[in-house]
Design a protein around this nucleic acid. Sequence first.
DNA 1: ATTACTGCAAAGCATTTGCAGACTG
DNA 2: CAGTCTGCAAATGCTTTGCAGTAAT
Lengths: 132, 132
Amino acid sequence: MDNWPEGMKKTKQRKAVLSVLEQVDKPLSASEVCSKLEANEEPAWLSTVYRILELFVEKEMVVKTNVLNNISVYELNRHKHKHYAICMKCNKMIRMNNCPMIEFVPELEDQKFSVVGHNLEVFGFCIDCKPH
Amino acid sequence: MDNWPEGMKKTKQRKAVLSVLEQVDKPLSASEVCSKLEANEEPAWLSTVYRILELFVEKEMVVKTNVLNNISVYELNRHKHKHYAICMKCNKMIRMNNCPMIEFVPELEDQKFSVVGHNLEVFGFCIDCKPH
DNA sequence: ATTACTGCAAAGCATTTGCAGACTG
DNA sequence: CAGTCTGCAAATGCTTTGCAGTAAT
């Protein structure tokens, strides 16, 4: 709840959304955030949650990722890269420990492309769902 | 037009979609495919195009990728990895020449995750759109 | 007091689905 | 001819938008 960006109003809903993201340490969809808010008895409308999440993304407090089925998930920007392997059966997300892109960015910069960020998603089967 | 999967009916629409993908050598959205079909005077309904593209993905003739704005794009599976850098302003897609994931898969396999595939998208600004 | 934010409803858009008629093998 | 595929329409589901009232500074 510290590091609140200058000029951004501290509303009940925004604080509640941030607190949800701080608690979970994994990416959530907008509607998952909504459910958690309800569970915390701090309900907020889904469209409000979207607006707050997009605001957080813009302020770089939150990182947005698109997953296979065209759903966006959001997680706190802990200022280190995180990528996930997503199980195609149960949708479990397994965090990967390092980022294969690091040594890759310079090549692109050479090609006159200025890299702002990237998404990487790996899909397959987790141990519980792996077809024998 | 060769290598038609066994048992898959050769309809006019399927041949036309495949031919569009063969011609462009870059990923297209379903509706872009649709427009190209119209331009070729082989019109097909958008829902049909979706069905055909998803069929091709299933048959591994086509690779599907999700981009930032929750739109899926499809391109011919030329059996080598391709990844793109996407310009955040003009949406131009710049092909990257190699895949940073190759040396990365074994680490995941160690973690008891069986890797089927991956998507990687890099975003930033192309030379024409780069803020000075 | 001013300005920005939220609840709510409704729209927007990509994608999916159901069904009857048309086409392929 | 049997079974599949397509055109079409309508539904679905995530996300966005408009607006009037509410809350923050």
